[in-house]
Design a binder for these strands. Structure first.
Length: 364
DNA sequence: AATGAGTCCAACCGCCGCAGG
DNA sequence: GCCTGCGGCGGTTGGACTCAT
């Protein structure tokens, strides 16, 4: 038992619209305006379903529509918004003047999704595939080093996990995965993931949207849009992720590789820069003296890790790992150097970090 | 030139929420 | 509270077009 069709399908024309039909719609709308689409076919002299007339108008004939290609700025905004709110095409399109949800959806399905695939990013979760595989492997209870992540690092990890495994939480996490952009996690307090998957009866729900209200979605859109439009990274508040932890220790950021046998384990560390040291360009990042002096940066083919991430794959294959060899993770010269997150620590112990060329460069 | 594969996108489909009776 | 109609939405389809062989 379903709703009956909106019109008699045997008696309506389908398929592509002719110029003559377009002219009839335009003439009708210019005279009567939009609304009550079910009566439009009859009044406009069309053998079309009213719904089809509405779609033709909203997706193609509306005078405020853009028909040219998407700009890189629009592309970036779509990706960021999709990451923040998922495939809510109408909400995304509302942030792109002159674009319809159909436009955005088609562009995503034909261009952007493929582009992310080619970059090694899952277009659904916006995570690197290798990380997803690693996460999948961990579900089976792979042995993990109990102390593999420093406490600060663990806080970051929790933030990532809550963001990516539950519904996006606009108050907490805005991931701006654009080139040279800042990712901020605005609220240290993390809500239990379960809250986003459980309704009032305590039963599981696979509809993540239940934990969002419209206001929160709009806040997310606003924040992502602002972040995308911002050219001044310094204006974005840095992350404060460890309450009361104003002192900094490099040991917090050292992790062990729990996958490789102990004799092959790789010491690795986060990639730091002082806020005052650069504009955020990867080529300007310098190794901290303490690390170098400790000998942790001495051998070739060292693996560098993302902020908040650990190595599940034996040292290869997810965003943030440098595949270009020694020191390339610092972005000095190699074309294969890309796609990692730079942590930025200021004098107060507050941290923000940025994706570096995650969109503009391939992963491999 | 013919043909098949791949790409793109306009249009369709079915479901949903909302408003009005 | 229920029913109905409408508009909106996201997913999918199918045909036109492009490109490679």
């Amino acid at each position: 038992m379903g709703r009956p069709p909106c019109c008699d399908k045997s008696n309506v024309k389908r398929g592509l619209w002719t110029e003559e039909e377009d002219a009839k719609i335009l003439a009708y709308v210019s005279k009567h305006g939009t609304g009550n689409w079910t009566s439009v076919p009859k009044k406009a002299g069309l053998k079309r379903c009213g719904k089809s007339c509405r779609l033709r108008w909203t997706n193609y004939l509306r005078p405020d529509l853009k028909h040219e290609s998407f700009t890189p700025q629009e592309e970036e905004l779509i990706i960021n918004l999709h990451q923040a709110i998922g495939s809510r095409w109408s909400l995304i399109a509302a942030q792109l003047p002159g674009r319809t949800d159909n436009d955005v959806k088609n562009y995503w399905n034909t261009k952007l999704r493929k582009k992310l695939y080619e970059m090694g990013i899952d277009p659904v979760t916006h995570k690197p595939f290798s990380q997803i595989l690693a996460d999948y492997g961990n579900i089976g209870g792979l042995p993990r080093a109990g102390n593999r992540i420093g406490s600060l690092n663990r806080d970051l990890r929790n933030a990532f996990m809550s963001k990516s495994e539950s519904a996006p939480l606009p108050q907490e996490a805005i991931l701006n995965a654009s080139s040279h952009s800042i990712m901020t996690i605005r609220t240290p307090k993390m809500e239990p993931i379960q809250d986003c998957h459980t309704n009032n009866n305590g039963s599981s729900s696979n509809n993540n949207n239940h934990c969002w209200d419209l206001l929160a979605e709009l806040q997310a859109i606003k924040l992502v849009t602002e972040a995308s439009n911002s050219t001044n990274q310094e204006t974005i508040p840095p992350l404060f992720f460890s309450e009361g932890s104003s002192t900094f220790s490099w040991s917090e950021f050292l992790v062990e590789d729990a996958v490789l046998p102990s004799e092959q384990q790789t010491q690795c560390y986060l990639d730091f820069q002082g806020l005052s040291s650069s504009t955020g360009s990867s080529s300007q990042i310098e190794m901290h003296d303490d690390i170098t002096q400790n000998g942790l940066n001495s051998e070739a083919n060292k693996t560098f890790y993302d902020v908040g991430e650990t190595d599940y794959g034996g040292g290869q294959g997810f965003a943030g790992i440098d595949k270009g060899g020694a020191n390339n993770a610092f972005g000095a010269s190699s074309s294969s150097d890309n796609s990692f997150i730079d942590a930025i620590l200021d004098q107060d112990g507050e941290m923000s970090w940025e994706f570096v060329d995650i969109l503009s460069e391939p992963f491999y």
